[in-house]
Design a binder for these strands. Structure first.
Lengths: 404, 404
DNA sequence: CCATATAGTTCAGATTGAAAACTAAATCCC
DNA sequence: GGGATTTAGTTTTCAATCTGAACTATATGG
């Protein structure tokens, strides 16, 4: 869709403006509610007022930034024109999960302007059937955008599995029983200038947490779904590794003599802390995920020993994996999401204890938190990736928008 | 010393030239022996011939690049002027280790032009005493540089411990019994325009491997010294983590019920695969490192069961840690250095087996290798950091050189 | 010796930010 | 109420630096 600048591309004179457009736009995005003036942007970025004026003019003309009336900062002097990200440009976040589909309309500033979701037993369903249902939801989002006067720039689609972003292929999504499925995400938002970006669910949730949640620059996001996934955020960027598969927390080895795992290995975290493992250890075998989760929570509330032990064990082994991860990557904050967030209060004691036992003093307990975004985190992250790409490369967006 | 460009600095017109100077210089460095002409550089970088001519003129004037006579590429037409990194600019790499000190003079192209080392039982010695001995070696390197007509740009000093690069402080080097020692690395090479950069031994070894060894862009370097250290190289850059302490492979947890470790944790890799742990498990208690290593190697040669088991166990647990690391960071190649390189042939079977058991198919066995640089890897890496900083920011070097 | 091919230089033109002067719009204070 | 002051934003001039095209330099081939 948009070609990223090659790292070895020659510097041209025009690159300076590309960079400064992004710098100013990002500055406006970061300042958020306080709606900076051109003069404040100049002070904040180190650019001259003249340069900022010229850059802002381009951004306003493109529709990415809007002026929002006068704004008084100090007591004297001419008041500035407040600037903010346009609320008339949006991105559609979409999520396919095991038992539901959801969409959300997110504006440039990150506000969730519309959302909808439906239950859908997707496991084992053909990708085409799932995509057809999702297309219905996407149409709702487009209608909502029309109603609110929001122009849709693009979309993000998160799926619980390994994906090839470039080619729109789901390499493997074991929980959906999908294997090497070629989707057509573009069809969901026909005509959107930036298209639809396919992404991994855990990674999107991690990015949602980064941009619209806790907001730390460095943390490890742990997503306990059917599998145990993770997203590594370093320096406010997702670390995906040389092959794009980093963050596979679920298959870190937490016991050298542990049981065999579905991945072919042995002693993986997932065999101790995956949803299935916890349900099984707690003696809860029947029903949908939702039903079993409710049974488990009730059992924990009642203090049922098997349930408590199951969650304690999961927490302890999760602690082993996180201790190793913290040592290796020097990660100093951890955010729990998905199933782990739901189990938070029961999981934490064993987890914190295990971390302290294996990596004493390495991680401040107050940096071990539960995600507050719940299900919308993935949606926000999926949409956010497109929004960030615009903020980081506004020039490229202008081109894409002009061509369309 | 030289201030790195802030990530949020505004782009200025002059930045374009900074970047292109680096692009051209790096291009010359990469092309290596084949001594490219200006026209070839233009084709390779995407810059115009005019721009390359102008950039090369600056680089030649600064003494970083030299013309090396005519060079014929095709059959017809005017031959080009071959260009290469100057062999008259060098950096001194220095290393403090537990039982020796060493220095090396490395020219811009990465050739080791001179090296020397002395045995020195540094454990427990005062930093001042060690630095005084090292200064003697450094003086030899300077004399060698004078004799060869090499001008010294700066130096790199690697120590086996955690360091604060900026302030020249060794935060902790347990194997030397050093704790928060303020060194004065600058004194070793008084007057060198880029000063002396302090660095961690394992990290330097990893970088040495990157620039002058295997040359993969992504790998995990495992250094088995007294402790077990590591260096994570991703996208041809060292990953140091948000706090600068990434790569602490030795304290990854490889057994949830393992013995206590000196770090206060339990079940750490180091308690199974550290030098001391191996010596102890093999029943070798007395003597210097060198002597004990020789004893161990002889015992392995003889097939002594205790020694074989000690090394097998170390390999197996190392495999557990590396399997986890590979999952988490998606690392696809591993290079063994230090003690592990010495034990290579005895360690490999158990290590490879363990990796395959815990992360089957994840890592191609041919990507599990032993470093070929031996001891000079650390030296080359320490010097290389300064050399790379010049190649990546030639403009800043020009300024620094001009001020001196 | 001249056609041709390739290397490298020179020069006009375009883009862009810095610096400084200027205009615009508010408050302060008498 | 009106000038002084303060702050916001624009205009103008200038310098840096790349591109592109024309030009010069130097080789081979017939």
């Amino acid at each position: 869709m948009n070609e990223p600048a090659a790292p070895n591309a020659p510097g041209r004179v025009g690159d300076v403006r590309r960079r400064n457009l992004s710098l100013v736009l990002d500055s406006i995005a970061r300042t958020g509610d306080s709606k900076p003036s051109r003069a404040q942007l100049a002070a904040g970025t180190g650019l001259t007022k003249a340069a900022v004026s010229s850059l802002v003019a381009d951004l306003v003309e493109s529709g990415l930034v809007a002026e929002v009336g006068l704004y008084r900062d100090g007591e004297r002097g001419r008041p500035g024109q407040g600037l903010e990200l346009s609320s008339r440009r949006g991105v559609v976040g979409m999520e396919i999960n095991v038992d539901y589909l959801s969409v959300g309309l997110v504006d440039l500033a990150g506000n969730l302007r519309f959302s909808a979701s439906i239950e859908s037993r997707n496991r084992g369903l053909a990708p085409d059937a799932v995509m057809a249902r999702l297309a219905g939801l996407a149409a709702e989002a487009r209608a909502a955008a029309d109603a609110e006067g929001i122009s849709i720039m693009g979309g993000g689609l998160a799926v619980p599995g390994l994906v090839d972003e470039q080619r729109g292929i789901v390499l493997s999504a074991p929980n959906l029983h999908w294997q090497y499925e070629r989707l057509d995400p573009q069809a969901l938002l026909d005509g959107a200038p930036l298209g639809v970006r396919l992404s991994n669910e855990a990674n999107s949730a991690a990015l949602g947490e980064l941009w619209y949640g806790g907001g730390r620059p460095d943390f490890l996001y742990v997503s306990g779904e059917v599998g145990v996934g993770g997203g590594v955020v370093i320096g406010s960027e997702l670390y995906t590794g040389p092959g794009g598969n980093a963050g596979e927390l679920g298959h870190m080895v937490v016991h050298p003599d542990g049981p065999p795992c579905s991945c072919g290995g042995a002693g993986c975290l997932e065999t101790f802390a995956g949803q299935e493992a916890i349900f099984q250890a707690a003696g809860i075998a029947e029903g949908s995920f939702k039903e079993r989760t409710e049974l488990l929570l009730r059992a924990l509330d009642d203090g049922t020993p098997a349930a408590s032990k199951a969650v304690d064990d999961a927490g302890r082994y999760l602690g082993v994996a996180l201790a190793s991860a913290a040592r290796l990557m020097d990660v100093q904050a951890i955010v729990l999401g998905g199933h782990f967030a739901v189990l938070g209060q029961w999981l934490m004691p064993a987890l914190a204890g295990s971390l302290e036992r294996h990596a004493p003093g390495l991680l401040d307990p107050k940096n071990l938190t539960v995600s507050g975004l719940e299900h919308s985190g993935t949606l926000l992250g999926a949409a956010g990736q497109v929004i960030r790409s615009v903020i980081e490369s506004p020039f490229e967006f202008l081109l894409a928008a002009k061509l369309a």
